[in-house]
Design a protein around this nucleic acid. Structure first.
Lengths: 140, 140
DNA sequence: TTCGATGCAAATAGTTTGCATTCTA
DNA sequence: TAGAATGCAAACTATTTGCATCGAA
């Protein structure tokens, strides 16, 4: 299944005149197999276990390109590292500032905030681009 | 009025055995006079226009100490710089990912999100520690 | 064979730290 | 005058960029 999904994306890339390389395939495979957001660090490690020669700079460049194409999204997590995930089925995160525990949540959690921001300020919230910081059950 | 407020804070610091220095006074004065969150960069510039010899490292060290005392808060703003503000009367921010426009908002905007996060996950949201990213009226 | 993509190294930005010196209390 | 706080420089982390080389189409 994941392999098929990767191939679908690669076909789309080819259609856009973008070349299918070892690095690109490995990055998309890891993103597809890993449900939810993953840090560049973890992503690069996973990629390098498949294709050892892939350089970090290449990972950054690819993530940036894939994001421009609308295929992946990044999220800022405060003190923590930037997290990437496939755009389809993207999830948001609640992150504990004390222990780092991360809870993945759907966009419905933001519906009221999004509505108020839009009504009061005309501001459209992007729930996938930032983590909600706070304190988890165990730490509070 | 601001001067009085700064003195109140300085008295409290003295009470905790913390010394009142030129740098500390300047940092607190700028934070008090500037309503809402300010970046370290802007804060340092404003501090240096009052006390030119204050080094950036000192600004960072002081902000960290003041935060430990619960007097100031920092917020992560995604791609942008970390913002600091006095803890009393702290505001949250909606930041446009396209043009950088910032809207300051009160904590009431987060009430529904905070309630759902608490009810469903026992997670306590800290609305002041992260900015809400999205797109402003003009950019969307 | 062409030119997009890569590896590598160096540059950059934001922040932290070690240490000798300064200055508050 | 003791030791907290500072200035400075160097270290660090995360990310970006220039450039010569490589390889997908």
């Amino acid at each position: 299944m994941p392999g098929q999904r990767v191939d679908t994306i690669l076909d789309r890339l080819r259609g856009e005149g973008i070349r299918v390389t070892t690095a690109r395939r490995a990055i998309l495979t890891v993103l597809t197999e890993h449900a939810g957001p993953i840090s560049v660090d973890d992503l690069a490690s996973a990629v390098q276990s498949r294709a050892p020669d892939v350089h970090r700079a290449t990972v950054y460049r690819n993530l940036s390109d894939l994001e421009d194409l609308g295929l992946v999204l990044h999220a800022h997590t405060g003190h923590g590292p930037v997290m990437y995930q496939l755009a389809s089925g993207a999830r948001s995160q609640l992150i504990c500032e004390s222990c780092g525990t991360t809870i993945e949540v759907g966009p419905e959690l933001f519906s009221a905030l999004a509505r108020r921001a839009r009504e009061q300020y005309g501001f459209v919230v992007h729930p996938h681009h930032f983590a909600v910081l706070g304190r988890c059950v165990r730490c509070s």
